[in-house]
Design a protein around this nucleic acid. Sequence first.
DNA 1: CTTATTATGGATAAAATATATCCGCAATAA
DNA 2: TTATTGCGGATATATTTTATCCATAATAAG
Lengths: 165, 165
Amino acid sequence: MVIGKGVEWAAHACAILALLPPESLLPREALAEFLGVPPPYLAKQLQALSRAGIVAAQTGVAGGYRLARQAEQITLWDITAAVEGTTPSFRCTEVRRNGPCGASPAECPRACDIAAAFHRAEAGYRKALATVSLSDVVAGAARTATTDRKQRIKAWLEQNAARRG
Amino acid sequence: MVIGKGVEWAAHACAILALLPPESLLPREALAEFLGVPPPYLAKQLQALSRAGIVAAQTGVAGGYRLARQAEQITLWDITAAVEGTTPSFRCTEVRRNGPCGASPAECPRACDIAAAFHRAEAGYRKALATVSLSDVVAGAARTATTDRKQRIKAWLEQNAARRG
DNA sequence: CTTATTATGGATAAAATATATCCGCAATAA
DNA sequence: TTATTGCGGATATATTTTATCCATAATAAG
């Protein structure tokens, strides 16, 4: 069971956007440089976040990305769902129906107990991610980072962010 | 995020082995036929289950597989871990360390809050699976299945199981 | 002891998915 | 009007999953 790297990148990208002063935008090139990830691939995740209404994009000269709503209102599950989709990780192929003793469709009104258990477990997983907001992440990072690093990040953001017209 | 089909197959295979009378063995060919899945690939999962000590294998003429311990003592997490491994689904690539404001190793003594949140969520996922035993699954299936189907399965097992020498 | 049967482990092939890149188009500010 | 920036689609590459095969070891039965 593997989560795509895009989720990690998207989460970190959102965490950076959360540091941005309001009314400011950060272009994807700058974002990719900051994160040290391949720009065109990050673009994919940003588009997904944009479609999901998590970030807002502005085209044009001084364009870029910003959070579409407050950091408190964005959870890690929102980001994961936007980038990875919401298809269940456990794919039930209805093994019950196969083979010499296969059950008829009528005998399978609901998911078997195996599939049900995996689905319950995944529901919990999603719920756990949904309890962590972007503001939690940012607060945690602020607590951990050295003053020096925070300063450097702030300076870099001021250098690379564009003001929204 | 996707779980391999092997987990589903392995779980159903174990559920069948749990129905087997004690001192009986079921060869993999029969198991694959019963489940309606490709025999050589199922063999892979059975080997993994065998290495993990979940099923016991016996080579030779009247050989085959049986559960290595009681169904109460085998959980869906045991099976998943045996087949898929225990590598965390969230792969932290330490994005913090990248780019113009990258943190030094010394500034990253522990996992960032994003990685930590995903790891917590996954720990819950595993725990949820660990609360479901094979005997729960078998009991659930027994409750759902028609008497006719249960009869057919019993007959088929008697037909295809070998007695252990 | 010989033979038939069955699991093991490694090598390999095919298919699917994740990762990465590119380009033409639309939108927008200056 | 022009330069910049995101959007969406098409495409290439790498990795993983899925599937198969074979030589070997183990074992029961004749």
